[in-house]
Computed example of a mutant assay.
Amino acid sequence: MTGINAIMFYALTLFQTTGFKNDALLLSAVITGIVNVASTFVSIYLVSIGVILLTHLNTTGTMDKRLAAVVVVLVCLYVMCFAWSWGPLAFIFFFFSAWIVVMGLFVVFLVPKTKGVPIDSIVERLWKQHPVWKNFMDDHDPKSKEMA
């Protein structure tokens, strides 16, 4: 729902459109992958806030001052990363969410379930019986007679 798959999938096309050549395209893919991995480690590091608080927070004011400073820095880093990503940009991801809803509805209403249907019978038992797709099936098609 965040749209990251679309960006990662089309990154090479985007870079090529901006004028990168073949070698630069490969380099851009490597750089994008490294940024993704490095950012993942930032997320893992931020989870350590919970671990620190779980293991070292007993009574208010009893945490070691250096460890407390680390928690403050991690919280600030989390807020900063949120402000760079979801904070001001959440409305952009509504576009991707709307398409996910459209795709989900398409699958639910227009793609028949094939479980338990032999592959030789799919045309006759599914496509020709489906409330929408049966309108597009040609009963006079020689290929469909061969399958029956």
Rank of each mutant, 00 (worst) to 15 (best):
M103I: 05
P112M: 03
K115Y: 01
I122W: 07
T40D: 06
Y10S: 06
A29Q: 07
V51Y: 07
G50F: 00
I100Q: 08
N22T: 14
I44L: 15
I122H: 05
V70L: 10
V30R: 03
F41Q: 15
M63D: 05
K145F: 07
L126A: 07
M63P: 10
C81F: 13
M80D: 04
V102E: 05
W86M: 14
R125V: 00
I7M: 10
A6S: 11
H140D: 15
F94I: 01
L25F: 08
F82L: 12
F136I: 01
T62V: 01
F15Q: 09
L89W: 02
K115W: 08
S121T: 07
T18I: 13
F106L: 12
C76A: 15
E146W: 12
R125S: 10
A24P: 02
V108H: 12
V72S: 04
E124P: 01
L53N: 07
N58Y: 08
F15L: 09
V47R: 01
I119M: 13
L126P: 11
T18A: 15
Y45M: 13
G116Q: 03
S85Q: 08
A11M: 11
L54E: 14
D141S: 13
D138W: 01
K113G: 11
L54G: 11
T114H: 05
G19K: 10
D139Q: 15
V132W: 15
L105C: 08
L12C: 09
T40Q: 07
F109E: 05
G61V: 08
V79N: 00
P118E: 11
P142T: 03
L12W: 06
S144E: 03
I7E: 10
T17M: 11
F94N: 10
K128N: 15
V79M: 14
V107D: 14
A6N: 12
L12K: 09
V42G: 02
S39Y: 13
L57C: 07
T60H: 05
V132H: 09
L110S: 11
I122F: 06
L67C: 04
A148F: 12
V132Y: 15
